[in-house]
Design a binder for these strands. Structure first.
Lengths: 127, 127
DNA sequence: GTTTGACTTCGAGTGCGCTCGAAGTTCTAT
DNA sequence: ATAGAACTTCGAGCGCACTCGAAGTCAAAC
């Protein structure tokens, strides 16, 4: 049995993912999609729900500063199927460490900024 | 009364701030120092404790993705002295909002990545 | 006083991730 | 059938924040 699928034009996909159509084409051409996006009865792209879900996950990787090249490696592992599960896990665990570090650094920086803010607030209050 | 000050060469300053000498020169030339760095009895820079402290704060702003141009605005306000306190406070408060948003987005992204990790761990465990 | 290594300025180059524009094609609505 | 909007590919361009190299100057150690 086949799921009845709604597909999306590139502009609809852009809207749903928060990326631009330009960026979606760039991601495809730079090898970040699991498979080339379907071209239904025309040259125009049709994004499936799975495509959208995938791109959404890509944006999580990007939002945590994973470089495009690393994402490409990850994509290639996914294409390899089940045999690459352990490698994918390792890649994501490694990445996780950097994300936690980024969060910690940003949190520390925020604290330093908050100290300045408190000083300025004090000054302004006594002006 | 004057504080007896230890000063630092550019390579010492680099070591202390975690930046490269190249970057320190770049920051100075692009207008991010409060005043030009002293050149003691030569053309060579001598960084004071205050310089180091200042650069350290700059790195907090950079670590939270404040663009160089915005930092420059902030620096100019600091140079204006006390009359700019309110403006500086406002600038930092605005920035704070973006930092909190960044933290939230990164945290959400991490959660999504953790979901994948959990799936892979499950798979690997049952292999 | 000479060597060695750190420093100087300057402008150009790099890497990343988009971002854009041109020129042409296809879909949708009338 | 046709107008207009949305899409296509392609390669070039951009913005940001460094990063580097060349060519020369200076200083600390011997």
């Amino acid at each position: 049995m086949e799921t009845l699928e709604h597909t999306f034009s590139i502009s609809e996909a852009a809207e749903r993912t928060g990326l631009t159509a330009h960026t979606l084409r760039y991601y495809e051409r730079t090898g970040l999609m699991l498979t080339p996006v379907d071209r239904a009865s025309s040259t125009h792209r049709r994004f499936t729900e799975q495509d959208i879900t995938w791109v959404s996950f890509l944006t999580k990787l990007r939002a945590t500063s994973m470089p495009i090249a690393r994402i490409r490696e990850y994509v290639e592992l996914v294409r390899d199927g089940d045999e690459s599960t352990a490698s994918r896990l390792e890649l994501l665990l490694r990445h996780r460490i950097t994300v936690v570090a980024q969060l910690a650094e940003m949190q520390r920086s925020l604290t330093a900024i908050d100290v300045k803010i408190a000083i300025y607030e004090e000054k302004v209050a006594h002006a």
